[in-house]
Structure formats: structure tokens, C-alpha cells
């Protein structure tokens, strides 16, 4: 299998704080790879470096054979690496459908001029954007809510909407940042199905998640971060029995019990 994403010695420091230290990881095409670790281990920092929101202090991010360091986030998205956010970031006052349509921005081209003068090409493209967005809403099961305001949606719906919006940008690799956070068990089950469906589309999935049943249920491989350092990597069954991993999690629990 070809490598979709390769991280080589990725390092991020904030004023002396080592958020991420010499992190190596390869995600192969068609895989679901999960990144787990205690709170504050640096998982979201990995995403932020990969998607161009933070310039990494050191190391390399290579996507489909192309170095991403220094590219702005929108360029990275256009290359096919799309993310969602841990704290849902929808365009609150836009409708559900419009949110997904924004995701099509990088896959469409009508400019201000053709829009203003209502050129036929722009009208055609606009219709295509709308159809594609509707199809994606149906894909995540939100086809009945397209006219609702994003901020009025229930929590689980917002998570799904964020995934639909990301899919609209036609990712080859989708980075999901804690998509199950705050979901009840039945919603989590639905999300698991959705992620498998996304993989069925041929999209590689890179997942940050705390929910162990979800991670162990769908991942091909799992990497574990603790204090910015990768402490383990392997198939889920192997990770569940890794002594270092257990210590990282239990150690954290013991520490929080002392508080």
C-alpha cells in the first residue's frame, strides 16, 4: 500500500514547552489510523501541524509524496487533506446546506465577475455544488435538515455536518479530531458506521479519539502519544496490552486521583 501521509521527526515547541517531540508516523492509503493519548499529550498539535495551522518547529510533513511544510491551510485542503475540529467549528448562522456548500469552494472556480454578471458557467457550477452538497447531507443522514441553521442543530448532528462539510472538499485523507466527544452510545455507534462508510469511499482516515471502543473497533493501527512523544504503535489488540500505554493512562488516572 502506498503511503498517504508521512510524518518525519515532527517537532513543535511553544516558548520552551515541548508539545511534540520527534514524532514519526506513516498512514497508508485506505487505512484508518488512530492517534490516542491522555489529555494534553499533543494529539491536536499533530493535526494542527499537518494541516498547516501551526508551522512545525522541526521535522517534515509529506502528503502523497509532497512536502506540506509552509503551505497555508487552504492549499493543503485543496491537495486533499481535510480536517474537522475538536471543538466543532461550523459557520453558525449559515444554513446546514450552505455549510456543506462552503466545503465545495476549493473544488469549484466561478469568480466574482462571472457570479456578478450571471454567466451560464457560474449558474451551472452553482447547481452542481448544490447537488453535491445535498448528496453529502444524505450520506451523513442529514438530508431533512438542510434549511436549519447550523447553530440550531443538535450536537450529534453538528458533528455529522462537520464531516459532511469536510467530505465536500473531496479529501483523500480525512483528519477527524475527536468526532465522538460528547456523543451518547447510540450516536457513537452511528458514527462508527459513518467512518467505515467514509473509508468505503476510498478515503483514508486519520482519527484522534478518546472513545476506546470506537478506536479499537475500527482502526487498522493505533499510535499512542504521551507528553508529546510517541510511546507505542501497532494494531489495536497489541496496543491494548502494551505496558507503556497502560502506564500512561493509569499513571494519569493516579495523578488525577491525587488532585
Amino acid at each position: 500500500m502506498a503511503e498517504a501521509l508521512v510524518l518525519k521527526g515532527l517537532t513543535m515547541r511553544f516558548q520552551g514547552l515541548h508539545a511534540l517531540e520527534d514524532f514519526d508516523l506513516a498512514v497508508h492509503e485506505g487505512e484508518i489510523v488512530s492517534l490516542i493519548g491522555p489529555n494534553g499529550a499533543g494529539k491536536t498539535t499533530v493535526f494542527n501541524c499537518v494541516t498547516g495551522h501551526y508551522p512545525p518547529t522541526g521535522g517534515e510533513v509529506v502528503f502523497m509524496g509532497r512536502r506540506l511544510n509552509g503551505l497555508p491551510p487552504h492549499r493543503i485542503t485543496k491537495l486533499g487533506l481535510v480536517r474537522t475540529f475538536q471543538n466543532i467549528r461550523l459557520f453558525g448562522s449559515m444554513s446546514v446546506l450552505e455549510n456543506v456548500m462552503v466545503g465545495r469552494h476549493c473544488r469549484s472556480r466561478a469568480g466574482a465577475f462571472s457570479a456578478m454578471f450571471a454567466l451560464p458557467s457560474a449558474a451551472l457550477e452553482e447547481r452542481a455544488i448544490r447537488e453535491k452538497a445535498r448528496a453529502l447531507l444524505a450520506f451523513v443522514g442529514l438530508q431533512d435538515r438542510e434549511r436549519a441553521r447550523a447553530m440550531d442543530m443538535p450536537y450529534g448532528g453538528q458533528r455529522r455536518l462537520e464531516i459532511a462539510r469536510a467530505l465536500a472538499a473531496e479529501p483523500r485523507l480525512l483528519c477527524l479530531d475527536e468526532p465522538a466527544a460528547g456523543m451518547n452510545p447510540s450516536e457513537t455507534g452511528g458514527l462508527m458506521e459513518l467512518i467505515s462508510k467514509v473509508r468505503g469511499l476510498g478515503v483514508t482516515v486519520f482519527l484522534i479519539e478518546h472513545h476506546m471502543r470506537l478506536v479499537m473497533g475500527i482502526s487498522d493501527r493505533v499510535a499512542v502519544l504521551d507528553h508529546g512523544v510517541k510511546i507505542a504503535e501497532g494494531p489495536p489488540a497489541q496496543i491494548q496490552h502494551n505496558a507503556k500505554v497502560i502506564e500512561a493512562y493509569l499513571g494519569q488516572e493516579a495523578a488525577s486521583a491525587e488532585d
Partner: peptide, 8 residues
């Protein structure tokens, strides 16, 4: 001042 990265 000191420069801080914007929180994402």
C-alpha cells in the same frame, strides 16, 4: 510584547 500562536 511576546508573540503567541493563535489558538486553533
Amino acid at each position: 510584547g511576546t508573540r503567541l500562536p493563535e489558538k486553533v
